[in-house]
Amino acid sequence: MNRPLTGEERTAHNRRAHFRKIEESAIRSRGEDKGSADSWLQILKARLVKDARAGNPDIWSGWVAICRMVLSALQRRAAGDRRIWDQVVAYAEQVCEMYPPE
């Protein structure tokens, strides 16, 4: 017999369902890749603002470092060197498997 979810578990489940709903809606309106990317950027922006308002000013410096890393990887990829891009994507997938967004 399954036990009922705790309040924290139910909140996490509802949040993941909300993320999926936003992503599915964006995919329907913008296509698979662009819609998915747009929805996650929207979710991320809201979370960055929320964390900054909660008194975590280091959130912006961390986000800047991540943006610079992705930009560097994109530039190297455009120049014909896919190694850094492939490493960034592999690391991102690994992190998301270990710690899925809640």
Rank of each mutant, 00 (worst) to 15 (best):
E8V: 04
E8G: 01
E8C: 01
E9S: 12
R10Q: 09
R10T: 07
T11D: 13
T11A: 15
N14D: 15
R15P: 02
R15I: 14
A17K: 12
H18L: 14
F19Q: 01
F19G: 00
F19E: 00
F19K: 00
R20V: 05
R20L: 13
K21S: 07
K21C: 07
E23P: 00
E23A: 08
E24V: 11
S25P: 01
A26P: 00
A26R: 00
I27W: 00
I27L: 04
R28I: 08
R28G: 07
R28V: 06
S29T: 13
S29R: 11
R30K: 09
R30E: 07
R30D: 07
G31M: 03
G31K: 04
G31Y: 02
E32F: 15
D33W: 06
K34E: 13
K34V: 06
K34A: 09
K34C: 05
G35I: 00
G35S: 03
G35Q: 02
G35T: 03
S36N: 07
A37C: 11
A37Y: 06
A37I: 14
D38N: 05
D38W: 07
D38A: 09
D38S: 05
S39N: 04
S39G: 06
W40N: 01
W40S: 02
L41H: 08
L41T: 06
Q42V: 06
Q42T: 11
I43C: 01
I43N: 01
L44F: 12
K45E: 14
K45R: 14
K45T: 13
A46P: 00
R47W: 13
R47I: 10
L48H: 07
V49Y: 09
V49G: 03
V49H: 06
K50R: 12
K50A: 15
D51L: 13
A52T: 10
R53G: 11
G55A: 08
G55K: 02
G55N: 04
P57S: 08
P57M: 02
P57H: 02
S61W: 05
S61E: 11
S61R: 13
G62S: 09
G62N: 14
V64K: 12
V64A: 09
V64N: 10
A65Y: 03
A65K: 04
A65T: 05
I66K: 04
I66H: 02
I66Y: 06
C67Y: 12
R68I: 04
